[in-house]
């Protein structure tokens, strides 16, 4: 257990460079959708970057491009200096829905990436059990996803993304489908987990508070076509305490800045 967590600690976060990236969806018979417009982001290894923006502004598009799932229209994305054209082995992804393979039990779901990369399952079984224990799922290894709550399934999905110690973890509104209380717990758990792992994280959300609480840096995107309107460094000491964070002056200051950016773009309108 201790050996495992110190193992995870030593893994290096990947460096990400996004240069002049645009994406236009060409749909047959319909108008093209200009989803992303000339985005530049430079992410330091081991930093936690949150992206907030209104629905449909191209957040998922950005994530799919970084995951190598869809082709770029212009520009380039470099992960540890390597241009992304197809999924990169050092990238793990957590999607908005837990996407459990419902015919597999928990541990076999977590080991899926290992199988797909034709690596030794036995070797990773211990890592999987340790990860599950860290998210409070010890003893659930052989349960089917249907026996778990939504929050537990999303925890399994996070373990699955972390099993091969990805240098870059991409998360697309991972708590969006959860109830408010579960979401709060997951926010705290994610901070604790990342505190041990310290890889590079790109975390997409539309929760301003969770973005500020979790991230070293918050990027605010404009409505479509998505651009980076604000690049905000969050200078709050870690570990951060979720309880009472909303009363914290520094936190309030960051939240206000993000809200003002949205208001300026007409994303948030007061009546």
């Amino acid at each position: 257990m201790n050996a495992i967590s110190s193992d995870l600690r030593t893994q290096a976060g990947a460096a990400v460079k996004i240069n002049n990236v645009s994406k236009t969806y060409e749909t047959r018979g319909k108008d093209d959708v200009h989803a992303l417009d000339k985005v530049d982001i430079d992410i330091a290894p081991g930093s936690f970057v949150a992206v907030v923006g209104p629905s449909g502004c191209g957040k998922s598009t950005l994530l799919s491009l970084m995951a190598g799932l869809i082709p770029l229209s212009t520009g380039e994305i470099l992960i540890d200096g390597q241009a992304i054209r197809k999924p990169h082995p050092k990238v793990g992804v957590v999607f908005q829905t837990d996407l459990m393979l419902y015919w597999r039990n928990v541990i076999d779901n977590v080991l899926l990436p290992v199988e797909i990369k034709h690596q030794d399952r036995a070797r990773y079984k211990e890592t999987a059990a340790a990860l599950l224990e860290q998210v409070g799922l010890k003893g659930f290894e052989n349960k089917m996803p249907s026996e778990l709550s939504g929050g537990m399934r999303q925890r399994v999905a996070i373990c699955r993304a972390l099993i091969q110690e990805p240098g870059l973890l991409l998360m697309d509104e991972p708590f969006g489908a959860l109830d408010a209380l579960t979401r709060e717990q997951m926010i705290m758990d994610l901070q604790a987990m990342w505190g041990r792992v310290r890889n590079t994280v790109l975390f997409i959300t539309h929760g301003i508070d969770e973005a500020v609480f979790l991230a070293d840096r918050v990027l605010v995107m404009s409505p479509r076509p998505g651009r980076i309107d604000l690049d905000l460094t969050i200078d709050l000491p870690r570990p951060r305490q979720w309880t009472g964070i909303h009363e914290n002056k520094g936190f309030q200051h960051y939240v206000r800045q993000i809200r003002e950016t949205f208001e300026a773009k007409g994303v948030l309108v007061e009546h």
């Binding site: 999924p87 999607f95 829905t97 899926l112 990369k117």
Partner: peptide, 19 residues
């Protein structure tokens, strides 16, 4: 979403089919 999930893990179509 499941297809995208396994593709993000580097799955080829053969694996996607069987898994």
């Amino acid at each position: 979403g499941l297809v995208n999930l396994v593709r993000s893990m580097g799955s080829n179509e053969w694996q996607t089919f069987f898994k």
